[in-house]
């Protein structure tokens, strides 16, 4: 674990894996430090932003984080219904050397975890994607990916909360309410959540 200074009241914690990112994020969250304003996990880092004067408490707390034997996140499982009829489903099957039915079984059979959010409000990067579905982005990104699209890219899968440009491979679509800024909990998926996809006709 390496601590990198980020101005006067933030620190960027750099670790070696997504598992360690989750260990740091879960530990800081569990510590319930009153002056932490933002806690932002990413691929290899956790950004911690505090109110002025609270950095020392954060640094002290970070010395107690066990990156190896962390208790793991206990969270409810979110199930997202998906119609697997995306425009890139055939491409994903072809790249994986599978039938489309096998792609659906693999994607809907796995359990995922929200590693972090970014790119757009409520856009969650889910890890746990089965190896054959880990595929590159499209050569040329789409200017508009429809809201609700379920997609894969690299080691991640995700569902687009709203229409945005995007280069991920689209395998299906969901009506799940992914993000609503007027809800008390606006994002359906937040870091640490466990997630499954369920094939619907």
């Amino acid at each position: 674990m390496q601590l990198r200074r980020c101005g006067t009241h933030a620190v960027l914690v750099e670790v070696d894996s997504l598992g360690e990112v989750e260990a740091v994020r879960a530990a800081v969250e569990a510590a319930e430090l009153p002056d932490v304003v933002e806690l932002v996990p990413a691929a290899r880092t956790v950004l911690i932003v505090t109110r002025p004067g609270a950095m020392q408490a954060v640094r002290k707390m970070l010395t107690t984080v066990d990156l190896v034997h962390h208790p793991g996140t206990v969270s409810d499982e979110v199930v997202i219904p998906v119609r697997y009829d995306g425009p890139d489903l055939d491409l994903v099957a072809e790249t994986a050397g599978l039938t489309t039915a096998e792609v659906v079984d693999l994607h809907a059979g796995a359990t995922y975890q929200v590693a972090f959010c970014g790119f757009a409000p409520g856009f969650a990067y889910l890890t746990g994607l089965p190896e054959p579905l880990r595929q590159p982005r499209l050569d040329s990104p789409r200017t508009k990916v429809p809201a609700g699209s379920v997609a894969v890219a690299g080691e991640y899968t995700a569902a687009y909360p709203r229409a945005t440009p995007g280069g991920w491979r689209l395998i299906g679509r969901t009506d799940a309410p992914l993000f609503d800024p007027r809800r008390p909990t606006p994002a359906l998926l937040t870091p640490g959540h466990r997630v499954r996809f369920e094939a619907t006709p």
């Binding site: 933002e38 950004l47 409000p121 409520g122």
Partner: peptide
């Protein structure tokens, strides 16, 4: 709306 960066906000 600080405090929502972990949601991509």
């Amino acid at each position: 709306r600080p405090g929502n960066a972990h949601l991509g906000v």
